[in-house]
């Protein structure tokens, strides 16, 4: 007897993935920066690569654009094989690089027109689109300003607008909101959600957990060039960490630590903080009461807990 596919799975298999990677390897000398990774990025999703510095995220994005070679494996984007069809891929993809590389010799509007020209699009062809993108990026009032007259947030929005000038089906964003203030980040998140709602596939790297949780339908956690796990933020949280976290900041005596260990599923000490992971926070909070010199924070487990659980807490430098 065969069961019909559940609707969601059926939906996935009908539309080929936008990106398909199999056994992808990238070496820098002896270092395996990307070490035999497999992933599929479904059309219309926001797909995130999450990992500490040096995990291989940026390298993976560069390979998707045909900007970095790979040493083994298969990689295709929008049905085009890499590296042979990189130009065809870049014509249909937009890139928001980690550092802005806008043209300082041009105004905001000229930056968009000039970039369109690299895609073989004339001024006349993109005139309306450029106006729409200026509006999308809230930069209409700055259209004639030079790039160096823009704030960091404005430059970032312009970089995103520039990545859309060829009406791409996929937009790749390498740490899109790094170094920006919270207001700007929220504006950018809103714009990215808008793009996704229009059916554009988003592929991004980030080490902001909040960004990953808000934006990504699906993510992979990478470290040392490997994919540690993959799923929706909810699935990852469910799979790897207990639902409740009690964080204790301050001096926790060995006795209290031992009691907590007996009551909770997992207790970890990191620096001056103790993290208590549990499914039943009530008794633990009752036990702790209102201790002197100790800050007790009770919260839902989040992606950050998953991330630290999977990649460890030691510094990456």
């Amino acid at each position: 007897m065969t069961l019909p596919d559940p609707p969601a799975a059926h939906h996935h298999s009908a539309i080929p993935p936008v990106v398909r990677a199999r056994g992808l390897v990238k070496c820098f000398g002896a270092l395996r920066a990307v070490d035999a990774v497999d992933f599929d990025i479904p059309a219309g999703h926001c797909f995130g690569f999450l990992g500490p510095n040096g995990a291989g995220k940026t390298t993976t994005l560069k390979m998707l654009m045909g900007l970095a070679d790979f040493d083994a494996g298969e990689l295709s984007v929008l049905g085009h094989e890499l590296p042979a069809e990189a130009r065809a891929i870049r014509a249909r993809v937009g890139l928001v690089p980690q550092g802005d590389n806008l043209d300082p010799d041009f105004t905001v509007r000229e930056n968009l027109f000039m970039y369109a020209r690299f895609f073989g699009l004339s001024r006349a062809q993109v005139a309306e689109r450029v106006d729409a993108l200026l509006d999308f990026a809230n930069l209409t009032h700055k259209a004639e300003a030079r790039v160096d007259q823009l704030s960091g947030g404005m430059q970032r929005r312009l970089t995103i607008a520039r990545a859309l000038v060829n009406d791409p089906e996929v937009v790749i964003l390498d740490e899109p909101t790094s170094g920006l203030d919270p207001q700007v980040r929220h504006v950018i998140w809103g714009r990215l959600a808008e793009l996704r709602a229009r059916g554009v596939t988003l592929v991004l790297t980030t080490h902001y957990m909040e960004e990953a949780e808000r934006l990504c339908d699906e993510l992979v956690v990478m470290d040392h060039g490997r994919i540690l796990d993959q799923g929706s933020p909810g699935q990852l949280i469910q799979r790897h960490v207990e639902p409740d976290v009690i964080e204790l900041r301050g001096t926790v005596s060995d006795g209290v630590f031992a009691t907590l260990t007996s009551m909770a599923l997992r207790v970890e000490r990191h620096g001056t903080a103790v993290y208590v992971y549990t499914r039943a926070p009530g008794p633990i909070l009752d036990f702790l009461g209102q201790p002197d010199g100790l800050t007790v924070i009770h919260r839902r487990a989040g992606l950050e807990d998953v991330f630290l659980h999977l990649t460890g807490r030691e510094l990456r430098e």
Binding site: M65, L67, R87, A88, R90, A91, L95, P97, N101, L102, D103, Y115, F118, F119, G120, A163, N166
Partner: peptide, 9 residues
Amino acid sequence: TFDAIMATP
């Protein structure tokens, strides 16, 4: 600027 152009075709 070259990096920016290399992200186009």
